[in-house]
Design a protein around this nucleic acid. Structure first.
Lengths: 149, 149
DNA sequence: TACGATTATATCGCATACAACATAATCGAG
DNA sequence: CTCGATTATGTTGTATGCGATATAATCGTA
């Protein structure tokens, strides 16, 4: 009953559309984030921390949907760059809390322009951004639900 | 005139929606592609070759939007797995042509079910797949155009 | 035809990403 | 209170991804 795809062709694949759009976005961010000395995932982590300082590794991972095996090295690089501090929680020694340094906090000011610059690049495509975003989130969460059980 | 975002919040970011949807799709593909012994980018490369055998490294990279620095090691791993052969073109020694082995060709049969399995997972999200795909392609190509000049 | 420019691929270094495993701290049932 | 289970983070190995650079082959022009 379900119509099988006529052919194995990349241009028909939603997955490839997402994959390649993600790459394109990453490339668009690069020159902008280079000025902040951040990679794209590092920027996402900083956005988390600017929103709420002192979060645990696990809390950040939950929001970014990243494993600790990805996050720990990333956060260590942010620490090496002097933007954050990683401190064991005194109440629960298993937990590591990430707090912004003065330099990390002040970077927020410089980063304020980033969304506007990106928005300008996106705008050129004449795509309804909010609609697209909501569809992607629905897709993502729909997939995640299947993986959960 | 342009409305600045009220707040730096990941849930407002189209980029994060694309980024996380891509991750979710990758995770959905994993158990399916594991049965073929392929990673997701390797699968994309094989799709290219099933479509048209004997393509050059550059041609494959153009379709997948990947640099040779990514593709060469990937193709070497496919060769190590016995799925493809990498042969210098005799006409132009700079060019390397990728041709399917018998094993690589026969894998196409097993791979035929992959799009249907993925489609079933996607379908649960109630998202209009074609619409979403076209919007993403428009976004991607809109971004790429800016980077070109 | 000689030789600088271009082209196609490869290599290296760095930064994700994740699965599998390791470790240390905390929790909880008896 | 004790010890197995759980939790939070870290480590290791493998596979992308890309920029910068290298190398070899081909092209183009004087």
């Amino acid at each position: 009953m379900t119509k099988a795809p006529v052919d194995l062709d990349l241009s028909n694949f939603l997955c490839f559309a997402v994959y390649s759009a993600n790459s394109a976005i990453g490339r668009a961010y690069k020159p902008i984030l280079d000025r902040l000395g951040l990679t794209y995932p590092q920027y996402l982590a900083m956005v988390c921390l600017w929103k709420k300082d002192g979060q645990t590794v696990g809390e950040i991972g939950e929001q970014l949907l990243l494993e600790t095996s990805t996050l720990t090295p990333l956060l260590k690089r942010l620490e090496a760059a002097g933007l954050v501090k990683r401190v064991r929680d005194t109440q629960d020694e298993r937990v590591v809390r990430i707090s912004l340094t003065e330099e990390g906090r002040s970077l927020k000011t410089k980063a304020k322009v980033v969304p506007n610059e990106i928005a300008a690049i996106m705008a050129a495509s004449n795509v309804q951004i909010e609609e697209l975003r909501d569809a992607l989130v629905a897709l993502r969460d729909g997939i995640k639900e299947q993986a959960a059980p």
